[in-house]
């Protein structure tokens, strides 16, 4: 799967990373799912804060795929 400009979002409370490239298949969110397409009632799998408490990160995301 190729995905350009995929972003990484970080939970401000526990530092959990949501990587658009990887998605979260364990939570029914397919790889490649953009942040805006993650359901609004989705919660951080670690600490339980809501989607609004995530921030976009300027991380290098060179995943060897």
């Amino acid at each position: 799967m190729k995905m350009n400009n995929h972003k990484v979002w970080q939970c401000i409370l526990c530092d959990f990373l949501y990587d658009e490239y990887l998605g979260l298949p364990e939570h029914g969110i397919a790889p490649g799912t953009r942040w805006q397409d993650v359901p609004d009632d989705w919660e951080c799998p670690d600490c339980g804060v809501g989607k609004a408490d995530f921030e976009m990160q300027e991380l290098q995301t060179a995943i060897t795929a």
Partner: peptide, 15 residues
């Protein structure tokens, strides 16, 4: 630094 804790239906969040 941040931390959280869940007890019963309390969610404690610390920053």
């Amino acid at each position: 630094p941040t931390f959280w804790s869940d007890q019963y239906n309390l969610k404690l969040q610390m920053i």
